[in-house]
Amino acid sequence: EVTIKANLIFANGSTQTAEFKGTFEKATSEAYAYADTLKKDNGEYTVDVADKGYTLNAKFAG
């Protein structure tokens, strides 16, 4: 089991951190699915991958 950390950075400057656990593939998929649920209210996002894929920095356009 691994933990994927998602740093969510919103256009207004606020941030949120979420963690997803499971296999690498499952946890990564859940992190992206969570970011997708936030698109409606926060706009499209881009992701910078860090820490060999164990940290995802998602920046929302607003």
Results as ranks from 00 to 15, higher is better:
20 F>H: 00
34 Y>L: 08
20 F>S: 00
62 G>S: 08
53 G>A: 03
28 T>Y: 12
21 K>Y: 13
42 N>G: 06
15 T>M: 14
5 K>D: 01
42 N>S: 08
21 K>D: 03
45 Y>D: 01
19 E>W: 15
53 G>R: 01
22 G>L: 03
59 K>D: 04
10 F>P: 00
44 E>N: 11
42 N>E: 11
30 E>K: 09
32 Y>D: 00
44 E>F: 10
56 L>P: 00
6 A>C: 15
20 F>P: 00
9 I>T: 11
9 I>P: 03
33 A>H: 08
26 K>G: 11
23 T>M: 06
48 D>T: 15
20 F>G: 00
33 A>I: 07
40 K>R: 12
58 A>Q: 05
47 V>W: 09
37 T>S: 15
29 S>Y: 12
14 S>F: 13
44 E>M: 09
41 D>E: 14
54 Y>R: 08
50 A>G: 10
41 D>H: 12
31 A>Y: 03
11 A>F: 09
57 N>H: 09
11 A>H: 09
18 A>P: 01
29 S>W: 12
54 Y>K: 07
8 L>E: 00
36 D>H: 10
51 D>Q: 04
32 Y>W: 08
47 V>F: 07
31 A>T: 02
48 D>S: 14
40 K>I: 12
59 K>C: 11
28 T>W: 15
60 F>T: 01
55 T>Q: 06
55 T>H: 03
3 T>G: 03
38 L>R: 06
45 Y>P: 03
32 Y>T: 05
22 G>R: 00
44 E>L: 09
31 A>F: 15
33 A>K: 11
37 T>A: 14
10 F>Y: 06
52 K>W: 13
51 D>W: 02
33 A>F: 08
49 V>D: 04
7 N>A: 05
34 Y>T: 01
51 D>L: 03
48 D>G: 08
20 F>M: 00
4 I>F: 03
7 N>Q: 08
59 K>L: 12
54 Y>T: 06
30 E>F: 07
11 A>E: 07
37 T>I: 10
35 A>H: 01
13 G>P: 00
44 E>I: 09
35 A>T: 07
61 A>T: 13
50 A>D: 10
46 T>H: 10
7 N>P: 02
27 A>R: 01
26 K>F: 11
20 F>D: 00
51 D>R: 00
13 G>E: 04
29 S>D: 09
43 G>M: 03
2 V>E: 05
31 A>G: 02
59 K>Y: 15
48 D>P: 01
27 A>V: 03
14 S>T: 14
6 A>L: 15
51 D>E: 08
27 A>Q: 01
62 G>M: 07
32 Y>N: 02
39 K>P: 01
57 N>C: 09
16 Q>P: 00
52 K>H: 14
16 Q>C: 15
24 F>A: 05
54 Y>M: 10
50 A>M: 13
22 G>C: 05
27 A>N: 01
52 K>I: 05
54 Y>I: 04
18 A>D: 03
20 F>L: 00
23 T>F: 06
52 K>T: 07
36 D>I: 04
19 E>F: 15
36 D>V: 05
28 T>N: 05
11 A>W: 09
12 N>D: 15
57 N>K: 06
39 K>I: 13
13 G>Y: 05
5 K>L: 11
19 E>P: 02
61 A>K: 13
62 G>W: 07
9 I>E: 07
26 K>A: 13
32 Y>K: 06
38 L>M: 12
55 T>R: 03
3 T>Y: 06
59 K>F: 15
10 F>E: 00
19 E>N: 08
29 S>C: 15
61 A>C: 12
36 D>W: 02
54 Y>S: 04
5 K>C: 11
59 K>I: 14
41 D>M: 13
37 T>K: 13
25 E>K: 09
25 E>M: 10
8 L>W: 12
39 K>W: 04
24 F>Q: 05
17 T>Q: 11
22 G>E: 01
43 G>P: 02
60 F>R: 00
37 T>R: 12
26 K>D: 11
7 N>M: 10
52 K>F: 14
42 N>W: 15
2 V>G: 03
47 V>I: 14
28 T>Q: 09
46 T>Q: 09
58 A>H: 06
24 F>L: 09
60 F>I: 02
19 E>C: 15
41 D>V: 12
53 G>K: 03
62 G>L: 07
34 Y>D: 00
21 K>A: 07
19 E>T: 13
49 V>P: 06
30 E>N: 10
33 A>E: 09
46 T>N: 07
53 G>Q: 04
49 V>N: 04
24 F>P: 05
36 D>C: 09
14 S>Q: 14
24 F>G: 01
26 K>H: 11
37 T>F: 12
37 T>L: 13
48 D>I: 14
33 A>L: 09
30 E>W: 07
56 L>E: 01
39 K>S: 10
56 L>K: 02
61 A>F: 14
2 V>T: 06
53 G>C: 06
27 A>Y: 02
47 V>G: 02
32 Y>E: 02
29 S>L: 14
43 G>S: 02
1 E>G: 08
13 G>D: 04
15 T>G: 07
54 Y>G: 04
53 G>W: 03
51 D>A: 03
48 D>K: 10
11 A>L: 08
25 E>R: 08
51 D>H: 04
43 G>K: 02
35 A>V: 15
45 Y>F: 08
19 E>M: 13
20 F>C: 03
31 A>I: 07
39 K>D: 00
45 Y>I: 04
5 K>A: 06
16 Q>F: 14
3 T>A: 05
45 Y>R: 02
6 A>H: 01
3 T>P: 03
56 L>Q: 01
10 F>D: 00
44 E>P: 14
34 Y>V: 02
26 K>L: 10
22 G>V: 04
36 D>Q: 07
37 T>H: 10
62 G>P: 06
7 N>E: 04
17 T>G: 05
50 A>C: 13
25 E>I: 10
59 K>G: 04
8 L>H: 02
46 T>A: 08
44 E>A: 10
51 D>M: 04
44 E>W: 09
48 D>L: 12
25 E>Q: 11
23 T>W: 06
43 G>L: 03
61 A>L: 13
6 A>W: 07
8 L>F: 15
6 A>I: 15
48 D>M: 12
49 V>M: 09
56 L>S: 01
15 T>N: 07
22 G>P: 00
15 T>D: 04
40 K>M: 11
26 K>P: 00
2 V>K: 05
50 A>S: 12
6 A>G: 03
62 G>F: 08
7 N>V: 15
27 A>E: 01
37 T>M: 14
4 I>K: 00
46 T>F: 09
19 E>G: 04
35 A>P: 01
49 V>R: 06
30 E>R: 09
45 Y>N: 00
55 T>N: 03
16 Q>V: 14
